[in-house]
Amino acid sequence: MSLVDILIGFFTVSAIGGGVVMLLARHPMRVALALIATMLSLAGVYALVGLHAVAVFQVFIYVGAVMVFMVYVIMLLDIGDRRALHRYGRVLWPAIAAGGVLVLVLGHLGWRAGASLPPASAGNEGTFLVQPFSAAFLANWWLAFELASVVLLVAVLGAIAVIQGSRRHDG
């Protein structure tokens, strides 16, 4: 077992630990910090398996943009409401039972899929450099790229519509 494998195991366990803290923490800010820790650990995993570009964008887009936005909203909406600090709804035990079954099924499927696939092809170190990655992106996935821009445009228009509708409602 090499150092890279040990580090991958460490980052994966710390990502799962962050997910568990997200379920247990009471205040939204602690949940956000646990999610940030999970995302940074996953970025470490991505970098260690060789996908450096995805790791960089995980840190830039997820932690740098999405989670900073989320933390700002948590601070903005810090309404002193005692009910919001109740952690769990009424379906706690059924949900935990269903989650236990799902984790067994997904874990087993993932384990079996990983074992049944042929072993990794050797000598693919250059596959995930920026140049072949960009070529694959714009040669094979250009339609998805254009559709993503449409999705972002619709999201911006939807956010503006929500805000405008609320203003009209208030006024």
Partner: peptide
Amino acid sequence: SFLLAASGVLFTLGLVGVMVRR
């Protein structure tokens, strides 16, 4: 196998969170 099983565990944690948190 290890990474796929970890992905299943993380997905389940997120799903249980959506169901139980208020």
